[in-house]
């Protein structure tokens, strides 16, 4: 499957995943404490520079930013109309700023590094007996392993409909897709147990 990580050797690429994630969290909190528009503009410029420092190409940047930027513009435009113009501008600056910073973090942090941080963050939960941290990695691996499998099955089901002259509908595809997919659960679980992966 595709990932949003882009290889590179910028300063952000070299920074540790933990510092980037903690930094992003702090940026999120701080942004909402700032209410001065000039200060927010300054921070926005800084975050734009941060994103540019990752040396992502323009096309790539647009592909990453546009979908959420559209949502943000619509919502902030509505806020300007329905509340005050100032409220709208402040939230536009805040949300765009966070979009830029988080895009920079996502593009420069490898999936395995984020996974390690998630596992580390889950260790306290493990001590409480709520889950096993190692299971998170196993489960995420399973999902990524089976998405292409489920997609293939979906196509086969669609073709099977077409071959029998039935127009594929969401419901008539979804039910067999779910049953066929979940029916493998016993076998997959048995294989995991047989291989002694969870001990």
């Amino acid at each position: 499957m595709k990932t949003l990580y882009a290889e590179g050797d910028s300063i952000l690429h070299r920074a540790s995943a933990r510092s980037k994630l903690v930094g992003l969290l702090l940026a999120g909190i701080l942004t909402f404490l700032v209410t001065s528009i000039p200060l927010l503009i300054g921070l926005l410029v800084a975050s734009a520079l941060l994103l540019l420092s990752t040396r992502l190409g323009l096309k790539d940047l647009l592909r990453r930013l546009v979908p959420l930027a559209v949502t943000i513009s619509i919502l902030c435009g509505l806020t300007m109309l329905l509340q005050t113009v100032e409220t709208g501008i402040i939230s536009l600056l805040r949300l765009t700023l966070l979009l830029l910073v988080s895009t920079a973090v996502t593009a420069t942090t490898a999936i395995s590094d984020v996974m390690d941080e998630i596992t580390a963050a889950a260790t306290p939960l493990e001590r409480l007996g709520l889950l096993r941290a190692a299971d998170i990695g196993l489960a995420i691996g399973l999902v990524i392993r089976f998405v292409p499998e489920v997609a293939e099955r979906y196509e086969v089901l669609r073709d099977a409909h077409t071959a029998r002259g039935i127009r594929p509908k969401t419901l008539s595809l979804l039910v067999p897709l779910i049953i066929l997919t979940l029916r493998d659960a016993d076998e997959i679980a048995a294989a995991i147990d047989a291989r002694g992966v969870r001990r």
Partner: peptide, 28 residues
Amino acid sequence: VRRQVGYIFQNPQNQIILPIVRDDIALG
């Protein structure tokens, strides 16, 4: 017992747990 006994399933599709072959083999 399972540490000593390996089991290959009828459908190997269901037996491979991780997306990349090397990672899956290392899992054991």
